[in-house]
Design a protein around this nucleic acid. Structure first.
Length: 630
RNA sequence: GGCGGUGUAGCUCAGCUGGUUAGAGCACACGACUCAUAAUCGUGGAGUCGGCGGUUCAAGUCCGCCCACCGCCA
């Protein structure tokens, strides 16, 4: 029996267009879905849109549209957005679909029949202008901020779900299942919430006030409010309770959410499932928020990042890769376009893309595109060892939701392959068998990387495999070294995989000469500045070549009885024996600094000629070593 | 006010149950190489590990207090 895996994003509320927050959660979910498909799981990936509520009805009215037409349009924008980002969802649930409404009504009725829903009176501060209840927090000086009117105390009939009844059970469940809410910080937060009474949950609104919703089956004068409408999508899309999908994928569910909706998913949703006698989901995975310039994104700050614009400029894979690689899942992460370009150039263009290019060129040039499988030798040991454990390591990181580490692990392998090529220098190898061995090993490594990176870079890794003449592969195909068939042939042509991107900053520095201060014009300083320098005459006692640098000399000096060592870049200008005995000018109170392993206590003054030759300054008359220069 | 999180090289981040000279990538400098997308490889530099105090033979890593930012709750 194959293992099953079910992952969901939240259903997104259609009062806003798709933005980076939606994209981030969805990309994380897509990564998990794609990984599990490649790793042999029977996988189901669900996303969708949340389309009911008074806000939607109002937004539709403002746009001069019927609610249904309005939600159709916004929902389509989400589908379009996921198309741009290559989100591989298997189903897209909309809460206005009849398949969903049916389940919601059925589920509500079940719980009502069990006695966990009761009718009660809600009392609160109601603003007539807003046509809704306001919370204390929203009030400004006791008045509605939008209408400047004091809200009136009003009672309203609501149905309530007996949530408090399940609090103890939920707390117990979370305590017994450490991985239920991940990462742990959010688990602690939920346990804190559950340590105090959570009360019962208002789940309906009178239809007179909120018309755009799903009617309660036992009382058509009320519609269900948010929770039962939205959260049940996770099982309605599977065809609860009799659907094949439901039987197959529930409860092996992992919900991916942002930390802003923790409480609804960690408290409301599990108790709702428990009340319906449905087994609770497996994991709730909570992601952090993306920040721009270290702050929240907001329209007023004008720092809102649009991942869809980035996708147009750099490709959706680059955006996916960047968001997954740059920030650890669960924490807030700082992102920027500059950061994206850096990551793209360094990891994708230089390390990975260039490796493909260089090895392809060699295989075509030296071997007419044909690879021969040769058993690895001592020179391959490091690569083979790395390849053997790679898939398992990546799998481990993915399980822990450490997507950034999973990707970094593969990138380290790619860097290892580049190092391997430099060490083995295939362009110098004469032995044809050994040359085969090196080229095969590199291509096989790229083949492995292409699979393990595919969950982040689905489009580009397929292109990479095409450039190697390979088709779809699974994780099982890359568990270890040497899966590439003997005699495999590379296609003659392949485009550059990741063309390098020039950032705005770099472009500028290219055309505008760097504004380094010219050597011969320095800023004016005061005498006090100058007086800080301790300049001394010193006599050279001995000179040796620096053990680790061709250009440096290690010079022992007599500074008036005190001996000290200075390292200077003089090897190209003076022979060691030529210096001994010379009296020179020393900056004696320069902060000591290690130069290639030898500590230098000061610096010798020298003039630089137009051709770059250095001439040490020497006193014009006889003076004692240690004499002060001023 | 209570609870929780974060604070480690210029930047983005690793550092598990405390243990050799605190790491990686980017950026910077120098060197090597030429198969390659001015690429790759090597070397180098600095960090009072937010601050103070404590436990310990030993703390970035545990405890206490404090500071900054963030979140949840009130």
């Amino acid at each position: 029996m194959t293992k099953t895996f079910y992952v969901t994003t939240p259903i997104y509320y259609v009062n806003a267009e798709p933005h980076i927050g939606h994209a981030y959660t969805t990309i994380n979910a897509d990564f998990l879905a794609r990984w599990h498909r490649l790793d042999g799981y029977d996988t189901f990936f669900l996303t969708g849109t949340d389309e009911h509520g008074e806000k939607i009805a109002q937004a539709a009215a403002r746009a001069g549209k019927q609610p249904q037409q309005f939600v159709d349009e916004v929902s389509a924008k989400f589908k379009k957005a996921w198309e741009i980002l290559h989100i591989s969802y298997d189903d897209f649930i909309r809460t206005t679909e009849s398949r969903h409404k049916k389940v919601v009504q059925q589920y509500l009725q079940e719980i009502y029949d069990r006695g966990d829903i009761y009718y009660g009176e809600y009392e609160g501060l109601y603003c007539v202008g807003c046509e809704r209840f306001l919370t204390e927090k929203e009030l400004v000086d006791g008045k509605c901020p939008d209408h400047g009117v004091e809200p009136e105390l009003r009672r309203e009939g609501n149905y309530f779900f007996k949530m408090e009844k399940y609090r103890a059970w939920l707390r117990d469940h979370i305590n017994k299942n450490p991985g239920f809410i991940r990462p742990e910080r959010y688990r602690n937060e939920v346990l804190a919430i559950l340590s105090e009474p959570i009360g019962d949950l208002s789940i309906s609104r009178p239809k007179s006030r909120v018309s755009w919703g799903i009617e309660l089956p036992w009382d058509p004068e009320h519609v269900t409010y948010v929770w039962f409408d939205a959260l049940l999508n996770y099982i309605s899309a599977l065809g609860y309770p009799e659907g094949e999908r439901y039987k197959k994928y529930w409860p092996a569910a992992q919900h991916m959410i942002g930390k802003d909706i923790l409480k609804t998913h960690a408290v409301f949703w599990p108790t709702m499932l428990k009340a319906g006698d449905v087994e609770v989901y497996r994991h709730l995975n909570v992601g952090g928020h993306l920040l721009a310039e270290g702050r929240k994104m907001s329209k007023s700050l004008g720092n809102v990042i649009n991942p869809f614009e980035w996708s147009e400029k750099y490709g959706s894979d680059a955006v996916r890769y960047y968001l997954l690689k740059e920030t650890p899942y669960g924490l807030d992460g700082v992102v920027s376009e500059e950061g994206l370009i850096e990551r793209y150039n360094a990891d994708l263009a230089n390390d990975l893309g260039n490796l493909l290019q260089r090895v392809r060129t060699m295989v075509l040039k030296y071997r007419e595109g044909v690879l021969c499988r040769r058993e690895p030798g001592a020179g391959e040991a490091v690569v083979v060892a790395a390849a053997e454990g790679l898939a398992a390591k990546v799998r481990g990181y993915v399980r822990e939701l450490r997507f950034n580490q999973a990707l970094e692990e593969v990138l380290q392998f790619v860097r290892l392959l580049n190092r391997y090529v430099n060490e083995r220098e295939p362009w110098k190898i004469n032995d044809p068998e050994d040359l085969d061995r090196v080229l095969y090993t590199v291509v096989d490594g790229l083949r492995t990387a292409s699979v393990l990176l595919a969950p982040a870079l689905p489009v580009k890794m397929a292109e990479l495999r095409a450039a190697l003449g390979l088709g779809e592969l699974s994780v099982a195909d890359v568990e270890g070294w040497g899966g590439l068939p003997d005699g495999h042939k590379l296609p003659a042509e392949a485009p550059i995989l990741f063309p390098k991107v020039e950032s705005e900053k770099k472009k500028q520095s290219k055309y505008i000469p760097a504004k380094k201060p010219k050597k011969d014009e320095a800023a004016t300083i005061t005498y006090e500045d100058f007086a800080k320098l301790d300049l001394r005459v010193a006599q050279v006692k001995g000179v040796e070549k620096h053990p680790n640098a061709d250009r440096l000399l290690v010079i022992r000096l007599d500074v008036g009885g005190e001996e000290r060592t200075v390292v200077g870049g003089l090897a190209e200008h003076y022979a060691p024996e030529e210096l001994v005995g010379k009296k020179v000018a020393l900056l004696a109170n320069l902060k000591p600094r290690k130069l290639r392993g030898v500590v230098s206590h000061g610096m010798l003054l020298a003039a630089e000629g137009a051709d770059g030759t250095l001439a040490l300054l020497e006193p014009g008359r006889e003076v004692e070593p240690g004499s002060k220069i001023s």
